[in-house]
């Protein structure tokens, strides 16, 4: 279907304007990463400074254990993504399709876990981590990240299941599917965009978190990327070049994950599936 020209122009105008707004501050980060001498600020608008250098990027790989941090972060984030998607897709389904006792109360209770200011939880969280012997363990980090990501993911999955007509499942049940089979073969594929968002969100939660990580991980060889990067910051003498270069490199895997997942985000599957 072709659209009127003015609509097409409008679409591109809006998109172009926001692309410019989106990338300009990030170009500034790139600019910082190219400056020698750890200068956070510049007095002109040039993105590529006259004295640019790739020294910061080189130093990350040669002088800093950047690859080690990357590996740690990838492992933790992948584990959290898998657990997050598995737990949220099932729990969301229960909250969307079933009516059971304590359903609304539990949903609200899940939300309440997000309401306490995280900074106040720091002290008790450390006490908990220390008492459970979770200091310097991957398990500790994973549990905390999964628990942080889940409330949103459960609600999000529930919202997506809500948009899938129940008649599809009923049809599958009539054709002889069990409830589990209907969930696996009919509902889950239709909820793909929701699963993608859940996966992205879980990944990002684990990928960018550092407050809890700083409590759990006390050994440098177990640092995740955000912890490693925060180490470049010191009061009044930060290594801005390394800090900015690492931040740029950190975002590349996110972009890659988004790229690989986004085709599932845009292929509508319900098209033509039900006529009501």
């Amino acid at each position: 279907m072709r659209e009127p020209l003015r609509i097409t122009i409008l679409r591109h105008a809006v998109l172009l304007a926001f692309v410019a707004i989106s990338i300009y501050p990030v170009l500034n980060v790139v600019s910082i990463s190219l400056r020698p001498g750890d200068r956070l600020r510049s007095t002109d608008l040039a993105i590529i400074p006259a004295d640019w250098t790739l020294a910061s990027y080189a130093a990350l790989f040669t002088e800093q254990p950047f690859l080690r941090w990357l590996g740690n972060s990838l492992a933790v984030s992948a584990a959290v993504t898998v657990t997050g998607v598995a737990l949220a897709s099932t729990a969301g389904y229960a909250f969307s399709r079933f009516r059971f006792i304590g359903r609304r109360a539990t949903m609200l209770a899940i939300l309440t876990t997000q309401m306490f200011p995280a900074t106040m939880l720091l002290l008790p969280l450390y006490v908990l981590i220390a008492r459970l012997g979770l200091v310097d363990t991957w398990l500790g980090l994973m549990i905390f990240y999964t628990a942080t990501a889940l409330p949103f993911c459960v609600w999000q999955m529930k919202g997506f299941y809500d948009t899938i007509p129940a008649s599809l499942e009923e049809a599958a049940r009539i054709d002889g599917c069990t409830r589990g089979q209907a969930f696996w073969y009919v509902v889950l594929p239709l909820a793909t965009p929701g699963l993608v968002i859940t996966a992205l969100f879980s990944f990002m939660t684990a990928w960018s978190e550092y407050i809890v990580a700083a409590q759990v991980m006390q050994r440098e060889e177990m640092f995740t990327l955000p912890l490693g990067i925060k180490g470049f910051q010191a009061s009044l003498s930060s290594q801005w070049g390394l800090y900015a270069a690492a931040s740029i490199l950190v975002s590349l895997p996110v972009v890659a994950v988004f790229l690989s997942l986004s085709r599932f985000l845009v292929n509508g599957l319900t098209v033509g599936s039900v006529k009501e």
Partner: peptide, 30 residues
């Protein structure tokens, strides 16, 4: 705006999520 017949959709989409992808602790300082 993205959901429709737009050219270069994938590129737009990618560039638009960049504020989310880059760590906030550096972009906020920027």
């Amino acid at each position: 705006a993205l959901h429709g017949p737009v050219r270069c959709k994938a590129i737009y989409r990618l560039l638009l999520i960049i504020p989310w992808a880059v760590p906030a602790y550096i972009t906020a300082l920027t």
